[in-house]
C-alpha cells in the first residue's frame, strides 16, 4: 500500500510536467470545456426587454 502511494506521489511531478509542457490544461479547457459551457449558456431563455 505504502509503495503504491509512494509511486503515485512520485508520478504526480512528471505527469504535471507533461501537462504543463504540452499545454494539456488549456487544450482541455478550450477544446473540451468551453464548447460544453457555450451549449449550456445558449440553451437559456432570458427576458431581455427593457
Amino acid at each position: 500500500m505504502k509503495k503504491k502511494l509512494l509511486i503515485g506521489a512520485l508520478s504526480v511531478v512528471p505527469l504535471s510536467m507533461l501537462i504543463y509542457w504540452f499545454n494539456l490544461d488549456n487544450k482541455l479547457l478550450y477544446y473540451g470545456v468551453r464548447p460544453i459551457l457555450n451549449k449550456v449558456y445558449n440553451s437559456y431563455q432570458r427576458n431581455v426587454s427593457l
Binding site: 504540452f22 499545454n23 478550450y30 477544446y31
Partner: peptide, 8 residues
C-alpha cells in the same frame, strides 16, 4: 485560429 499553444 484558436491561438492555443501546441506546447509551452
Amino acid at each position: 485560429g484558436s491561438g492555443i499553444a501546441k506546447h509551452r
